[in-house]
Nucleic acid binder design. Structure first.
Lengths: 126, 126
DNA sequence: GACCATGGTGACCTCCACGTAACCGAGGCA
DNA sequence: TGCCTCGGTTACGTGGAGGTCACCATGGTC
């Protein structure tokens, strides 16, 4: 049963919970997952990312990419030409992240209706 | 390949990305995953949760539980006794969430070292 | 009458994630 | 001499997440 495995891992609170929080802090911000999803489709230039992700500001795209680069999830390649050309891509480590993300995404797609319904019921009760 | 599936889902930006953001907003806050993890081990009373989760304040525990209850992930059972007794447990829907959470947790445990190392290298370069 | 535990609620404050807007430097091009 | 593009950086402002602390109702118990 899945619950048992989860419990076992969660039980080691010092190591596990704090670590999962660290990765949630990384991936749980507003743009990281979207950027990772876009880069999952292939290498992208800065401006390509900006155009592909509606609503993201230049500043936030830079910040998000820096964070992902710092954590070794994304690689940054500068081509010394004019105008500048910078390519971003998922690293091998970044690629391995796609699977857990996909699992979560899939869960969201499968159960969003139930959640929506539960919210309606809860709010209806007051 | 996992990347392809992820990309396909992410490609439907309107439906998928916004939905995964919704679930990340729920699960990505500071305490929800920890509470879910604890409840994954079995039903718990309010005070048991408070004691089991070091650092959480009464107010945040209440808020977190209310949010999870609203989304149908956690059930709340009040026993009309004195002093009050309130039991919290994962709903069937909440139980299904354990698997994707476990996947993410597992990824975190497997790759945290690499991330730590990447951070060190990045910060070292300045 | 005073004190305890339980399961909260509400006022208040702080900090930071995020948004907006302006600016920048190198070179091509007209 | 400007003006363009690309890939940023910097200054500044704001909302909301989350922390702290006080307070509360109930009834048992001493």
């Amino acid at each position: 049963m899945v619950a048992d495995r989860v419990s076992d891992v969660f039980a080691a609170r010092d190591s596990a919970t704090c670590r999962v929080r660290e990765i949630l802090d990384r991936v749980g911000d507003k743009w990281s997952l979207t950027v990772i999803g876009e880069l999952g489709r292939g290498s992208r230039r800065f401006t390509e990312l900006k155009n592909a992700i509606p609503g993201i500001s230049q500043r936030m795209l830079t910040a998000t990419l820096r964070g992902l680069e710092r954590d070794g999830l994304v690689s940054r390649t500068v081509h010394p030409v004019v105008p500048p050309r910078v390519d971003y891509a998922l690293t091998p480590l970044g690629l391995t992240l796609l699977e857990p993300v996909w699992t979560l995404l899939n869960w969201a797609l499968e159960h969003m209706d139930e959640i929506e319904e539960a919210r309606g019921a809860y709010d209806g009760r007051g």
